[in-house]
């Protein structure tokens, strides 16, 4: 049984420019202990999806238009605030891109670390502090007993992200949502943090939803990948499959445009044009205006996600019709 199942989530923003369909009919499953990656460019709706699940969307201008997010029998989107509060921070935790903005600069780290314990577990302050020291040691902070009482600005960027992770994991959550946790960090520090999340996940058996724009991080970290574009999931599969047998032209093109896989001297593959304006209605496939393979039907016909192979889904009409086969070869590396 899945730990978390999101069904047909739709989150819209009502802005001056019109209704922005930030997340449009997104569904996914998260098994216990699994690592799931959501990859997409800015504005693809990957963060909004997770914020919606945790009720962190500012309303207005945001509005959750439909869908369910079932966690342990409770619909997170429909349940009352009190119930959601008990789950959030205790059974589902989140780490953000910028640790400085998500830590309160006026409170000592110790206060912020023990807060979830005092709120959710009702243990004594003494005990909570002991647990906080342990949790800092577990994320590799030396001299934790002393550093526990530092203010956030007294830590470096990498250390702050470690504190964030310690904070997110202190109540031993079943789900950890990591929203670009290493984007703001240097590569050598990113490597440390990824390693740390992996290790803590193994120790605690936490399921992780990893939101990133970096396919490299996905390859290194996730077992299952959802590719998002313009507020929709366009492809999902096991990580190996996503890279070995892309079934959606967007996923294929995204991989081709990464310099790491390119030979020098050849121009980089580029996806022409820009992502669509989500405040305008998009009949058909949202990627069709930029797609090399697009046909008239792609621009007109509504697309749905369909399973093509074992746990491999694509929203490409032409792939579903069997008109496209090896996207990797067609695009050419």
């Amino acid at each position: 049984m899945p730990l978390l199942s999101v069904e047909n989530l739709r989150t819209y923003f009502y802005t001056r420019a019109g209704v922005v369909r930030a997340v449009d009919d997104v569904s996914f499953l998260l098994e216990p202990g699994e690592t799931l990656g959501i990859v997409g460019e800015s504005g693809s709706g990957k963060s909004v999806t997770c914020y919606s699940i945790l009720g962190l969307i500012p309303q207005p201008p945001g509005r959750i238009m439909g869908g369910r997010a079932i966690f342990d029998g409770v619909d997170l989107l429909g349940c009352d605030k009190e119930r959601l509060r008990l789950i959030r921070g205790k059974r589902i935790s989140m780490i953000f891109q910028d640790p400085m903005t998500s830590l309160n600069p006026y409170l000592r780290v110790s206060e912020q670390l023990i807060e979830p314990l005092l709120v959710h577990e009702k243990i004594s302050r003494r005990k909570a502090l002991d647990q906080a020291v342990t949790s800092l040691e577990e994320v590799g902070i030396q001299d934790a007993g002393r550093r526990l009482h530092f203010y956030p600005h007294e830590f470096s960027g990498g250390m702050r992200q470690r504190v964030m992770i310690a904070m997110a994991l202190i109540s031993r959550p079943e789900v950890l949502i990591a929203d670009e946790p290493t984007t703001a960090l240097d590569v050598t520090v990113q490597a440390q943090i990824l390693e740390l999340i992996k290790r803590r996940q193994r120790d605690l058996g936490t399921a992780v939803i990893f939101i990133t724009h970096d396919l490299g991080v996905i390859a290194a970290f996730c077992r299952e990948v959802y590719v998002m574009y313009a507020g929709r999931i366009v492809e999902s599969a096991a990580t190996g499959e996503i890279f070995a047998r892309p079934m959606h032209p967007y996923n294929a093109a995204l991989q081709q445009s990464i310099p790491a896989l390119h030979q020098k001297g050849k121009p980089l593959f580029t996806i022409p044009g820009l992502p669509p304006d989500l405040s305008k209605p998009l009949p058909g496939c949202p990627f069709s205006p930029r797609c090399t393979y697009a046909e008239p039907k792609c621009r007109e016909q509504a697309v749905t996600l369909q399973t093509m192979a074992e746990r491999h889904q694509t929203a490409c009409l032409r792939y579903q019709a069997g008109e496209l086969n090896d996207l990797r070869a067609a695009v050419g590396v």
Binding site: V187, Q192, A219, T239, G240, L261
Partner: peptide, 18 residues
């Protein structure tokens, strides 16, 4: 430290974590 966007090569990557 740079993850490679290719699971096969990524698995073979020798990591030196500073």
């Amino acid at each position: 430290a740079v993850p490679i966007p290719d699971p096969i090569r990524e698995r073979a990557r020798q990591r030196i974590i500073l």
